[in-house]
Design a protein around this nucleic acid. Structure first.
Length: 479
DNA sequence: TGAAATGTTGGGGCG
DNA sequence: ACGCCCCAACATTTC
């Protein structure tokens, strides 16, 4: 064989179909050496969180299977690992699909120029975006800061790239390098808290497509309205698959559009679903153009916001789902149990933390980073800033959710609360979102003693709402 | 991708 | 029949 070896570096694209880097390596006539590198060294403060690591373990196991045990698995500084692998395998080229986290961009640029200086052919591809961030700018060539014009005017001009088929056949390169094993990465948590996640999710490329199909058949019709209902099955739950690249947004976009066209799905439903993919794009877009959003307020005027740093017990109660506000506790417990939370509920729990409790959005960002299987630097940062009001196109400062009304509106029968807060399962729906207003007879017949079986509310909603408005008003005036 | 306060309207009870 | 009041129901504004 005269084929030369090429490293295909898998990163956040753990799939074989619609993988431009893999396809390009094959099209160039190379024999493929697939590699995964866990690079926590360069990730600095954004080392993978616990739930993400659990997912990654399953996902790499699945990918290893799909690659017929040819995937080399390593950890450490990616530049050093790749350099060593080039020496061990005689690879003449390295291919990857681009990532957009600031630390990865910096690292990858250095790797690319270093390898090129040594005569290695390095090529990177667009495998994770519908529209790459630098392609979309306002007429004055500056980036959008508001979603709707970004999406309607900026993105909609061009249809997203059509996905590539899975290669018919992959030729693997011969080499003597040590293969490594996913267990070497020690991704599985030390403590046994992932049984709920394992029960809730099937991981891997095939599972991603199955989940998408289930959503299209069971949840796309009515999506625009019922996507807000945590008690229903009308959201796609594609986020962890997209996060790890087990499916690309291009695949989701085009598969969903084709399904909608063939099955009389109302325009409003499919369009709204695609716009949610657009929100993911917008998050990456913001991270690319404003890399500070991972930690600094996008709007400077929030820098002197009077966060309450006094009571860490409140944060703990929020994390544990023991706030005494049922819709919030249901969400936080769903998160801990499944590694995922319904989007509507994410907004509700975020609003409570940041506005009613006046706890810095960083605390929420960090908890979500560690507990979400879809923890994604772009989406997590952009969304927490959105909730806090400090971000782009953010909720106006006065938009404070009332979790009681939100619960009654979006979980009208209380089924979602009953599922995740079982101590309230016998509460009548009239009071399930406000057990503190139920009379003693109702509480007794539901078997609930407030303060014992289920907590009293962590804050008075009306009082804390006014306190937040005052705080936000003071910030606004000091601007 | 809010909520609460305030304003407006219109139907029905009633003198 | 009419005016007055009450108060949902809805609309607007304000935070």
């Amino acid at each position: 064989m005269t084929q030369k070896n090429a490293i295909v570096w898998f990163r956040q694209d753990l799939r074989l179909a619609d993988n431009p880097a893999l396809n390009a390596a094959l099209d160039a006539g190379h024999a493929v050496i697939p590699v995964y590198i866990l690079d926590d060294e360069n990730a600095a403060e954004w080392k993978l969180g616990g739930a993400t690591r659990w997912w990654l373990h399953q996902s790499l196991t699945s990918l290893q299977d799909d690659l017929r045990e040819h995937l080399i698995i390593r950890q450490g500084d990616a530049a050093s690992v790749i350099q060593a692998l080039i020496e061990d395998t005689g690879a003449v080229a390295v291919y990857w699909n681009r990532c957009y986290e600031p630390w990865r961009i910096k690292r990858d640029e250095a790797i690319k120029s270093g390898l090129k200086d040594n005569g290695i052919d390095v090529e990177s591809f667009d495998g994770s975006m519908l529209w790459e961030p630098w392609q979309v700018l306002k007429d004055d060539e500056t980036p959008y800061r508001v979603f709707t014009p970004y999406y309607r005017k900026g993105c909609a001009k061009s249809e997203p790239r059509k996905p590539l088929d899975r290669p018919d056949r992959i030729t693997y390169g011969d080499h003597d390098a040590v293969m490594g094993h996913v267990d070497d990465l020690a991704l599985m948590p030390d403590i046994q808290w992932y049984d709920g996640m394992a029960a809730f999710w099937d991981v891997g490329e095939d599972a991603a497509h199955k989940r998408l199909q289930d959503f299209l058949e069971g949840g796309l019709k009515g999506y625009k309205d019922d996507r807000n209902r945590p008690d229903m099955e009308n959201v796609s739950r594609m986020s962890p698959y997209l996060r790890h690249g087990e499916i690309s947004p291009n695949q989701v976009w085009h598969i969903a559009k084709e399904y909608a066209a063939a099955n009389n799905i109302p325009d409003k439903d499919i369009d709204h679903y695609c716009s949610e993919l657009g929100w993911r794009e917008f998050s990456y877009y913001l991270l690319f153009h404003f890399p500070k959003i991972t930690w600094d307020n996008l709007q400077d005027k929030f820098d002197d916001f009077p966060w309450d740093e006094s009571d860490s017990e409140e944060l703990k109660r929020w994390q544990d789902g023991q706030t005494g506000i049922p819709i919030v506790d249901a969400g936080m417990r769903q998160l801990y149990e499944t590694g995922w939370m319904h989007n509507r509920v994410r907004m509700i729990v975020g609003s409570l933390l940041v506005k009613n409790l006046l706890i810095h959005w960083h605390k929420g960002e960090e908890w979500f980073w560690d507990t979400l299987v879809d923890a994604d630097l772009a989406s997590n940062s952009a969304s927490w800033q959105w909730v806090a009001g400090s971000g782009a196109d953010a909720a106006p400062y006065f938009r404070i959710f009332n979790p009681l009304l939100q619960g009654e509106k979006f979980d009208p029968n209380g089924d979602y609360v009953r599922r995740y807060v079982p101590e309230l399962k016998d509460m009548p729906k009239e009071f399930i979102h406000k057990p503190w207003e139920a009379g003693p007879l109702i509480l007794q017949s539901a078997g609930v003693k407030l303060g014992e079986d289920y907590p009293e509310p962590i804050v008075d909603l009306k009082e804390s709402r006014e306190r937040a408005l005052d705080a936000l008003q003071s910030t606004k005036q000091s601007d």
